[in-house]
């Protein structure tokens, strides 16, 4: 089992500045799953509860000189502590950037690269070799090696299970609506958290997103209308235009134009933390039969409005109640 690659400058900035901070909010521990063409950061795919998050990178998005081999069709997966990984990467990057400090990135000599590899080492005061993910680079005056402890690589059956979970997490909701402003929604949900739990979400084919927390003492909600819809669409019936948010979404559910699910406020708020990865848009949708609430983040190729297909990030929030629809 071997893995060795060099992180590209773009890969470093994607991980250090954007994805690791966002993924760390999803949960401390995640699976890093490497295949011949892709690297995945996966949260909660093997254990049932909790928010699932799937970050997928084509190998070229992060690495060059990517070499992987294993007896399991060149697939390797292990668990890693994201905050440790982030700290190690930050430390390595400060040394790595020493060359660039004077003259920008162009000044980095080709010999100076940031290598990442899997190693087995004998930790201090221990008789047994342990697996590590190692970052290695040298700067102008110094060189640095950071060993991030990782779990034992997953067994063949566990990897198969992980791959199966990944495959089944790819199905898209029939209707997706684009979230207008993630920061605003985040502030709103953070304040809503004080009022109660869970939160019910309904999404309609007309482009309405309706959130509501309801307890015996209070009902607090927000409705966003006329959002961009991807997938199945419908027109708002004229007589529904001037109703309250609650009646409008109830009627849309009855017509079959909307679905509603309940999720934990904590999970919902976590899903919004993904904006730390600086996606260009975010879409919410409800999976068929109300199986889960799906959030899909879209990344553009810098300077364009074209989707960058080498990066993808989506979350699946477990549903607390089968819901309607």
């Amino acid at each position: 089992m071997k893995f060795k690659a060099f992180l590209t400058d773009n890969g470093i900035s994607l991980l250090e500045k954007r994805f690791l901070p966002a993924l760390d909010k999803m949960g401390k521990i995640c699976h890093l799953y490497l295949t011949r063409d892709h690297a995945f950061f996966l949260h909660n795919l093997l254990n049932g509860d909790g928010i699932q998050s799937i970050a997928q990178f084509r190998k070229e998005a992060l690495f060059d000189d990517y070499r992987i081999s294993s007896q399991n069709e060149d697939r390797i997966a292990f668990a890693v502590d994201l905050s440790l990984l982030h700290r190690a990467l930050r430390s390595v990057v400060t040394i790595y950037a020493e060359f660039g400090a004077d003259g920008g990135a162009a000044a980095v000599p080709p010999s100076n690269r940031l290598q990442i590899k899997l190693v087995k080492k004998l930790p201090p005061h221990s008789q047994q070799a342990m697996p590590f993910l190692t970052f290695e680079t040298k700067g102008y005056k110094s060189a640095v090696i950071q060993d991030v402890p990782i779990s034992k690589p997953l067994s063949r059956t566990d990897v198969l299970e992980l791959q199966a979970a990944l495959d089944s997490a790819q199905d898209l909701p029939q209707t997706l609506v684009q979230v207008p402003d993630m920061n605003q929604l985040q502030t709103f949900v953070d304040r809503m958290k004080h009022v109660g739990d869970p939160i019910s979400m309904s999404i309609s084919k007309c482009g309405d997103l309706h959130l509501q927390i309801s307890t015996t003492l209070i009902t607090l909600g927000a409705e966003f209308r006329k959002l961009l819809v991807i997938g199945e669409k419908a027109q708002v019936p004229a007589e529904d235009r001037n109703l309250t948010a609650q009646s409008r979404s109830e009627r849309a559910i009855l017509r079959g134009d909307a679905m509603s699910v309940q999720v934990s406020v904590k999970h919902f708020s976590k899903s919004l933390q993904c904006h730390l990865a600086k996606p260009d848009c975010a879409f919410y949708g409800i999976a068929p039969q109300g199986a889960c609430l799906t959030v899909i983040f879209q990344f553009f190729i810098p300077g364009t409005h074209q989707t960058d297909k080498s990066i993808s990030l989506h979350c699946r929030l477990p549903v607390l109640d089968p819901g309607s629809g």
């Binding site: 207008p180 003492l217 209070i218 909600g221 309250t244 948010a245």
Partner: peptide, 11 residues
């Protein structure tokens, strides 16, 4: 705003 509305009903 017409397209975004927050509401609360407090007992």
């Amino acid at each position: 705003s017409l397209d975004a509305c927050i509401y609360a009903e407090i007992r």
